[in-house]
Amino acid sequence: MDASLTEAFEAQRPRLIRLAYRMLGSVAEAEDAVQDAWIRWSRAGEGVEDPAAWLVRTTTRLAIDRLRAAKAQREAYRGPWLPEPLIEPLTEDPVERAEDVSVAFLLALERLSPLERAVFLLHDVFDEDYGTVAETLGRTEPAVRQLASRAREHVREARPRFSVSQEEALRLANAFMAASTQGDMAGLSALLAEDAIMVTDGGGKRAAALRVLVGREDIVDLLQRIAWRQHAPEMLQVGGARINGYPGFVLTLADGPATVAFQPGQDGLIAAVYMVRNPEKLAHVGATGVGSR
Score class of each variant (00 low, 15 high):
residue 283 A to L: 08
residue 77 Y to D: 14
residue 200 T to D: 12
residue 39 I to T: 15
residue 216 R to W: 06
residue 222 L to R: 13
residue 291 G to K: 00
residue 50 D to Y: 02
residue 236 L to G: 06
residue 78 R to M: 12
residue 14 P to N: 11
residue 194 E to L: 03
residue 139 R to H: 10
residue 165 S to L: 05
residue 196 A to S: 10
residue 220 V to N: 10
residue 287 A to N: 07
residue 37 A to F: 10
residue 145 R to Q: 15
residue 158 A to N: 06
residue 142 P to E: 11
residue 213 L to C: 02
residue 25 G to L: 01
residue 83 P to T: 01
residue 146 Q to H: 10
residue 45 G to P: 09
residue 212 V to C: 04
residue 63 A to L: 06
residue 156 R to W: 08
residue 81 W to E: 05
residue 271 A to R: 10
residue 292 S to E: 13
residue 276 V to Q: 09
residue 131 G to I: 02
residue 31 E to S: 07
residue 132 T to Y: 04
residue 119 V to H: 08
residue 133 V to S: 06
residue 59 T to P: 06
residue 137 L to T: 10
residue 218 D to M: 02
residue 77 Y to R: 14
residue 281 K to T: 02
residue 242 R to I: 00
residue 75 E to P: 00
residue 225 R to L: 07
residue 7 E to N: 09
residue 179 A to P: 14
residue 24 L to Y: 01
residue 247 P to H: 07
residue 50 D to R: 07
residue 206 R to F: 05
residue 79 G to F: 03
residue 168 E to Q: 14
residue 83 P to N: 01
residue 220 V to L: 09
residue 107 L to S: 09
residue 214 V to E: 08
residue 281 K to H: 06
residue 198 M to T: 02
residue 229 R to W: 00
residue 44 A to I: 04
residue 146 Q to A: 13
residue 74 R to Q: 14
residue 57 R to Y: 02
residue 69 A to M: 08
residue 193 A to V: 00
residue 194 E to T: 09
residue 84 E to N: 03
residue 108 A to V: 02
residue 172 L to A: 05
residue 123 H to Q: 11
residue 246 Y to K: 05
residue 265 G to S: 02
residue 75 E to A: 15
residue 170 L to C: 03
residue 108 A to G: 05
residue 228 W to D: 15
residue 130 Y to M: 11
residue 167 E to T: 09
residue 222 L to N: 00
residue 1 M to I: 05
residue 10 E to D: 15
residue 107 L to K: 10
residue 228 W to M: 07
residue 151 A to F: 03
residue 60 T to C: 09
residue 6 T to D: 13
residue 23 M to V: 01
residue 167 E to V: 07
residue 1 M to Y: 14
residue 157 E to N: 12
residue 115 L to R: 12
residue 186 A to S: 14
residue 172 L to T: 06
residue 174 N to Q: 14
residue 112 L to V: 04
residue 87 I to V: 12
residue 101 V to E: 05
residue 282 L to Y: 06
residue 209 A to V: 11
residue 41 W to D: 15
residue 76 A to W: 10
residue 151 A to N: 04
residue 119 V to F: 08
residue 88 E to V: 06
residue 230 Q to C: 02
residue 90 L to F: 00
residue 38 W to D: 10
residue 102 S to Y: 01
residue 2 D to W: 12
residue 291 G to P: 07
residue 143 A to Y: 05
residue 90 L to Y: 00
residue 182 Q to R: 12
residue 83 P to I: 03
residue 81 W to N: 03
residue 102 S to H: 00
residue 268 G to F: 04
